[in-house]
Design a protein around this nucleic acid. Structure first.
Lengths: 184, 184
DNA sequence: TTTTTGGGTCAGCCATATTGACTTAATATT
DNA sequence: AATATTAAGTCAATATGGCTGACCCAAAAA
């Protein structure tokens, strides 16, 4: 709205706003769908998958950090987390610094399942990337980022275009290895 | 995988596969979130929203068509559909051609709610479009389309680049006005 | 006439979410 | 040292939105 020229060009795509609503519905339905069969084999659901994903990404994160990311209540998390811990997919050990905090990590068994779940979804994304042009990937990324409302969640994703060399470490230190935000 | 050159360029973006998984999670969470407050005011949930959306898009569609799109069972749909009909958001009348079929349409009340729900989500999408470059929208669209597994659902979206003139009618006959696929 | 189809319904189950209240242990504050 | 706050866990009750299985009815098709 701020830049009238920009808005004018977007006006041409007004139908595409409606279309985008459906694209999100169908794409997300199928994106989650590819992991469901695998989860069902283990008697798990999507809630378990989300826990595995975020624990895999930030090993050692605490229960309250996980709660903030998932945006569910402690009671809701406790049920699935308890199953994952009891069945040996996740370990929960008290922190050295603060013994109240429980640091969550995946066991080998948990990592193995998470790897297979991630592969199923990443294969789908790869095939979508292959069907589009290479330039589409960056556009996809920018629009998706714009859909994320919560600034803290948006901050999880490194800036794409303007990358100060100082911030790029040698390894592929993507967002995957950065600790979650610990601010209250 | 078929084209090794293409794959090589995608290889550079391997981290982006992992990133895309999270983008989908957060973007979809916030995308659905903007409609939730409005739905809650009416005592409805996302299931009601989906019915309103698809009935609005294809007025007169049948129950079985809606079931196929939503991929839920008749029993699951019946609960929410019954509420929507009883509370005067949706009408269900027997078809002239085939009296077994019930043709679903929105009442003015239903259309009004659907308009407000759509606006909330479309405002979010517009703001995401504005934050990205204009070229990003097409990339977003192509990748999202590639994520849709079901060919019938993918066919809902008109081809973007190669548009045979014969298929383009005069009005803005977007996907919104095309009847749903009636194949089994 | 018989079968199939579209739609509806009853009954029960499961997964995932919610709120509210409470406990425990550890850390922080005063 | 006493008190408050925090992180985590738990119990109980409730809601939503899925599911299966078993039916029924009426209309259309075979």
């Amino acid at each position: 709205m701020a830049d009238p020229k920009k808005h004018a060009s977007l006006f041409l795509h007004e139908d595409s706003l409606h279309e985008a609503v459906e694209l999100l519905f169908f794409a997300y339905r199928d994106f989650t769908g590819v992991a469901d069969a695998l989860l069902a084999e283990h008697g798990f659901g999507r809630a378990h998958h989300r826990v595995l994903h975020f624990v895999a990404q930030s090993p050692g994160l605490s229960v309250s950090e996980l709660l903030a990311t998932l945006r569910i209540t402690k009671q809701s998390l406790s049920r699935v987390l308890k199953q994952l811990v009891e069945q040996g997919y996740v370990t929960s050990k008290a922190s050295g610094q603060d013994a109240r905090r429980r640091e969550l990590t995946l066991t080998d068994k948990g990592q193995d399942l998470q790897n297979r779940l991630a592969k199923a979804q990443q294969d789908l994304i790869l095939s979508a990337y292959e069907q589009a042009e290479a330039s589409s990937v960056d556009g996809f990324r920018k629009v998706m980022l714009g859909l994320i409302q919560e600034p803290l969640d948006r901050a999880r994703f490194a800036a794409p275009a303007p990358q100060p060399r100082a911030l790029r470490s040698k390894g592929s230190a993507s967002v995957a290895n950065r600790p979650l935000d610990r601010r209250r």
